[in-house]
Design a protein around this nucleic acid. Structure first.
Lengths: 235, 235
DNA sequence: CGAAGCCTTGATGCGCCTCAACGTACGTGG
DNA sequence: CCACGTACGTTGAGGCGCATCAAGGCTTCG
């Protein structure tokens, strides 16, 4: 667990690639460290976007809530990623909530300094916009998926995605590195926890995954990949 | 129809707000005009992103095609909007295709000059990033919609959206200003042309819309809005 | 005038949600 | 440390929303 800010450690993170150690030190001097207990909200959808953040340790769930109280998980943030960067896109409010999926450590900067910072460190600005580009593309990929693929494929894709981004090798296979429930998966894929449970039970029987309470280990990622890409029985 | 570039006319467009006439003139000097016939592709998904564009007249459909050949319409671009701005997000290739929905006139700039341009005209950069922010938010809104709402609601929302952004008042009601088919609507909402046709036939009977071949006129936008927001029979 | 594209409408079936009930692991407080 | 409450997971039965399959009418354009 991190107690002090060491520029030399943090500078290697992707958001800062291309910056000098001096620049990093100056930038870090303006940051405020932050701890977030599992389950706590770092910010809420609709709140004024006062800060942007860098996750140093943990995982964060980015969630949108509908007027009816339903939730949709927009994405997971892993350590080393920026989040809450509404200001970079000229937004006054956060478009979603950020919830700590486990105990987290992060840095925060006041949104005010975004423009000056981006101007002073073009590499940082470029990296940030690349991140945003990736997320826009990701959102549109998922839109296409939602529009054209069946639940089984979407759930398989979602799990593969999580494994790819946050997988940890274990004796059994590749484990998703944070607690994740059937309900979470259903909120990522636009289905119900029941359907997810049924699908995963099936896959467990087939030996593709091994899963327990808020825990998913993937054994046959190739087979899952086949499921993610297979067409319906017709056509 | 536009034959010459008049900085005074173009400078009032949102992408350039905050720029001086001098700056505009310099920027326009680097632009290449472009005409695109209805149905033609201005660029294709996956192609190298050599240029970014400003639509001066017409409407453009931004389309993603899946490996199976299915299409999903990501959005429509109206005149005055930028498109193809992959470079601003550090992308080497266009993430979708741009197809002229009607005969179009546009300007194009080489992607190379993006960074220098953004640095030279911060207002232009800020405006562009605001646009991108809006599109990211829009994509995520649609994701939530796809995940939580039924087809009827999504189709109603899509039509209301089109009306809001591209509606033209007529004797009958508000007409969507470009040719749009049942299939197009289905590709925006993740359903089939059959379902869209059935829904719109129903709404036509109820006097909410009036529609013909590639033509939609909305009469009762409030009633449509009710449909877009109404919950299922349960709950 | 024929062909191609767009729209409509019916019949049928299935994917997945909904409703329901129960089993099981966790953690919290007495 | 055990007992209880709560959150998570499983599995069945039933039904509905919407895709799919099918056929035909209408408009536009070459």
């Amino acid at each position: 667990m991190l107690t002090k800010l060491d520029p030399a450690l943090i500078r290697d993170l992707p958001p800062f690639s291309g910056m000098t150690l001096d620049q990093m030190t100056t930038l870090l001097a303006k940051a405020t460290p932050l701890r977030a207990d599992k389950g706590s909200h770092i910010f809420d959808m609709g709140a004024e976007a006062r800060s942007f953040f860098l996750l140093l340790d943990g995982y964060i769930r980015v969630v949108r809530t509908t007027p009816n109280g339903e939730q949709v998980i927009a994405r997971y943030i892993a350590s080393g990623e920026l989040f809450g960067i509404a200001e970079a896109l000229g937004m006054k409010q956060y478009p979603a909530s950020a919830v700590a999926a486990v105990d987290c450590v992060a840095l925060s900067w006041p949104s005010d300094i975004w423009h000056a910072t981006a101007a002073a460190y073009p590499a940082f600005a470029t990296n940030t916009y690349k991140t945003i580009g990736g997320r826009l593309q990701d959102a549109q990929d998922r839109l296409v998926e939602m529009a054209t693929e069946r639940v089984e494929q979407r759930v398989a894709s979602a799990i593969l995605n999580l494994v790819e981004r946050s997988g940890r090798q274990t004796d059994d296979g590749i484990l998703i590195d944070f607690p994740i429930s059937r309900q979470d998966i259903s909120e990522m894929t636009g289905t119900t926890l029941h359907t997810v449970s049924r699908l995963m039970s099936g896959w467990e029987n087939d030996g593709l995954v091994k899963s327990g309470r808020q825990k998913i280990t993937v054994i046959g990622s190739e087979a899952l990949s086949l499921i993610a890409n297979k067409e319906g029985s017709s056509q």
